[in-house]
Design a protein around this nucleic acid. Structure first.
Lengths: 351, 351
DNA sequence: TTGTATGCGTTATCAG
DNA sequence: CTGATAACGCATACAA
């Protein structure tokens, strides 16, 4: 604040009072006479005084800011979540510091160190695809840093978690494909260590099993970098296409993977859904403008951000340690854009 | 840092030294003996000491963080810019605080106050559509807060600016439409007070004039909220469609407006480009997956972020006041996706 | 080469 | 009701 030097001292000096009196007047303390209060408040207003939050942080040993780490902000799901986080944070006078891991464990830890060294009061995080060692989070959490996990959570750490019903989302999507006549449904998923991968994979398998379709492991492809490297998704799709029993549909298990698959199929001039159907998790509003409009599973990202933040602020501001942590499971929504599937149904019926 | 109490004092006490010795040893000061240094550094490492940046900020009166204000992070152009900003900032040990104005002047100022009260060392901003009063920025800048404007700049304030060649981008896009046979080209633009609006409008008009096509003001529609309110774009498009001499093409002057126009046309079942061509500024990678793939003017967003940040850090770290401010103008790129236009050419040729 | 004292802006404690 | 002082964690001018 090189450029705004107005402090409590300036007020004290100008008014011939002590700094403590001014401080108390500003905080509307009961021990200050109404006249003094009025005097101080008016003068403070006049010279446009604002308390220095840095000094406050030092004193109160809290920064009134929370850290957010996601893999990428240029991803609809996460940018929508951040909007939700910000809305609650700002309403409560908290600042939000955003950092991106870009799906790298190393960057995640670096960001974490940066944020904690900046004295964040709490952390909201969706871990990277690479993250398999959770000791760092665990340690911080045990040392007293409140953490709320969302989306890609860490089961081992006992704190609040906010997720969508990944199992049901994947189950619904897969069932939808089956209902429309597809039988060889491939699944392109994130790293197997992610919570969402496990849950979505389970939903996919359950849907198949319930419809008496055998699970073919050769149709499941893991993308360990979550699609951050396009070639990894290309390899996955290509190998699926080369499969001796080629799949007739792909279920993509994340926003990034869905878009990547679509892009790759398009580049290879494979008609979607006529040659290959595609359904996936995605929060991109633009899917409806795409060709074809995709059927997607949408997550209530904004609400997830809001809820995660409320829970975090609760943790931060609770005096005594919280013991009853909860895992909020929100509903995910299958958005069926019929045009992409109907054709296929016809084809199926006719053939 | 409630959870990490290791301070310089702890080290001093443990090692039987004074805090100043420890401080100097940690900063590798020349006046400290190698042995003491080694002792201190090793112990600091061992107990995992990290300096408290809050205390440092208070002392040094700088926070090593920069503020960024954009209208919306869930917008490809801005999220890409932020990526560029972050990459440079983090390389230089700066933290980035991101805030969204959501095209509201009020929110912009609130964010600004929040950020400055948090002692940001500098600001990177693309102003909101509503912003017409620049006195606030001017004042802060004159008080010593380094500011770099990008995209939507404020001409009146003498500091670094980073923009793309908006004039040429609009000129190229309009020319492209003309070259493909369109004659009644509408222009849907942001608020008229924005720098980009003026520049893009000028490019659009110049292209028409150069091709001897009269400028029809009834084909120009301003969106004062930059498309944040969908109905405003709907009104613009609807009124264009009702125009007695209906346009045969729309040139949309921002990412948000381009997507909005496309969505509206689609909802109204107006074939693009057969019934109405559409070209616009857009950084969304997804345009190529859209139906139809749009011809767009793309801005080098990431690079803009990088450059803006380099300039800002230069301002922040320069000892003496800088006087030779520069306006960096990067090239914008017209990405022609022929399929969207070719049909139209055929139609034109045939008719 | 090392230690002491001071200040950054604020609030809490204790004294008047 | 108000004022002086210490403390938050760190860096540094000044002393030794």
């Amino acid at each position: 604040m090189r450029f705004e030097a107005v402090t409590i001292k300036d007020i004290a000096k100008a008014l011939g009072l002590s700094t403590s009196t001014v401080s108390r007047a500003l905080r509307d303390s009961y021990e200050i006479s109404p006249e003094t209060k009025k005097l101080v408040l008016e003068y403070a207003e006049k010279i446009n005084y604002h308390p220095n939050p840095i000094a406050l942080s030092l004193k109160e040993r809290r920064s009134r800011s929370i850290g957010v780490i996601v893999c990428e902000i240029a991803n609809s799901f996460f940018s929508q979540t951040i909007n939700g986080i910000e809305s609650i944070a700002y309403d409560n006078g908290y600042n939000v510091m955003i950092a991106q891991s870009r799906e790298s464990f190393k960057r995640e830890i670096l960001n974490l160190q940066f944020l904690t060294s900046r004295s964040i009061d709490g952390l909201i995080i969706s871990v990277s695809t690479e993250t398999e060692d959770f000791s760092y989070f665990k340690e911080l959490n045990e040392k007293g840093l409140p953490i709320v996990f969302f989306d890609r959570i860490v089961d081992e750490i006992n704190t609040h978690k906010v997720i969508v019903d990944n199992y049901k989302g994947a189950y619904d999507a897969t069932s939808h494909l089956i209902k429309n006549g597809y039988r060889r449904i491939a699944n392109v998923v994130n790293s197997g260590s992610l919570s969402i991968t496990k849950e979505r994979l389970a939903g996919y398998k359950a849907a198949l099993t319930d419809q008496k379709i055998p699970i073919d492991e050769s149709l499941i492809r893991f993308c360990h970098h979550g699609g951050m490297i396009l070639s990894e998704v290309e390899d996955a799709v290509n190998s699926l296409l080369k499969n001796k029993k080629r799949p007739d549909a792909i279920f993509a298990s994340s926003d990034k993977l869905t878009i990547s698959c679509l892009r790759i199929l398009k580049a290879r001039k494979i008609a979607v859904p006529d040659t290959m159907a595609l359904v996936g998790f995605s929060n991109t509003d633009l899917t409806e403008l795409m060709s074809p409009p995709l059927t997607t599973i949408r997550q209530p990202a904004f609400e997830m951000g809001e809820i995660a933040t409320s829970l975090l602020l609760q943790l931060i501001e609770s005096k005594r340690p919280v013991t009853d942590f909860e895992t909020k499971i929100l509903a995910s929504e299958l958005i069926i854009r019929d045009s992409s599937i109907k054709k296929k149904i016809k084809t199926k019926v006719l053939s």
